[in-house]
């Protein structure tokens, strides 16, 4: 990911900033410019809570060099509590511990590094709820 794109997406990647259509109330992540349901082009910012559940997942053993430092890692489809389904890595969990429907929460982690000299990309991952007793 180039420097401008990393910068442009920082609010999405650090804080799950999406968008909402004020007319039909639909929520979007990543954010959209135009509502695909009612074609309203005046969408407002919406910050998701970061809470959700695992819809499905897979374990990656073969990947590009940028991600080799974390093999094996888990990529999941996450249903955010507010509605949208997104793709994200799971962290702080072993593959055999993951279950479909498992409640998860967003954390900011290192996604990849360009190389030893390049930019470090931070962004959202999801982990099992760390402290369910305090939920």
């Amino acid at each position: 990911m180039g420097i401008p794109r990393n910068w442009r997406l920082r609010n999405q990647r650090y804080r799950l900033v999406g968008s909402q259509c004020p007319q039909c109330q639909n929520l979007f992540f990543p954010p959209r410019q135009v509502c695909p349901h009612c074609y309203n082009s005046e969408l407002s910012e919406f910050v998701f809570s970061g809470k959700g559940s695992v819809y499905s997942f897979t374990v990656l053993y073969q990947t590009t060099p940028k991600f080799e430092f974390q093999i094996p890692y888990i990529v999941a489809l996450i249903d955010l509590n507010e509605g949208p389904r997104i793709t994200a890595q799971l962290t702080d969990v072993d593959a055999e511990e993951v279950r479909i429907g498992m409640p998860v929460e967003m954390v900011v982690r290192k996604i990849s590094e360009e190389n030893e000299r390049g930019l470090i990309h931070y962004g959202y991952k999801f982990r099992p709820i760390a402290f369910p007793e305090s939920e």
Partner: peptide, 13 residues
């Protein structure tokens, strides 16, 4: 720290 953790990620939490 896990492979995806560093001073920045820990400072954020």
């Amino acid at each position: 720290p896990g492979p995806d953790e560093d001073t920045v990620t820990m400072a954020i939490e």
